[in-house]
Design a protein around this nucleic acid. Sequence first.
DNA 1: TACTTGACATTTT
DNA 2: AAAAATGCCAAGT
Length: 104
Amino acid sequence: MTSDRLDDYVEAVLSIVEQVPRGRATTYGAIADALFDEFGGGPRQAAAVMARHGSLVTWWRVVRADGSLPERLGDEARQAYLSEGTPLRGTGAVDLRDALWLPT
DNA sequence: TACTTGACATTTT
DNA sequence: AAAAATGCCAAGT
């Protein structure tokens, strides 16, 4: 049936990603924490959603806890960071000290 | 039903 | 400071 809570979780994650301001970034843990009230789960579930539907959103605005991101996407994300002026730390990772955005 | 895999996080060497 | 080990939770097989 249609009331799949999984799809609902997916939309919730994508919604948060779409809400991230330009030039800013958030982490999987922050998203998981924000949705933990309603769905629980953990950062891995948020990541699983991105792996499935991440192509539909600004996935480069979602990074790991240390500001770095998956090797496979590093290249494409770098282009986006340069375009949006995201604060980088020098090694290609986002400087979360300045760029970290927490879901509302 | 049990095992393996995964856009992760945290703690300990 | 950097790397390895452990923990977490759910989906896929």
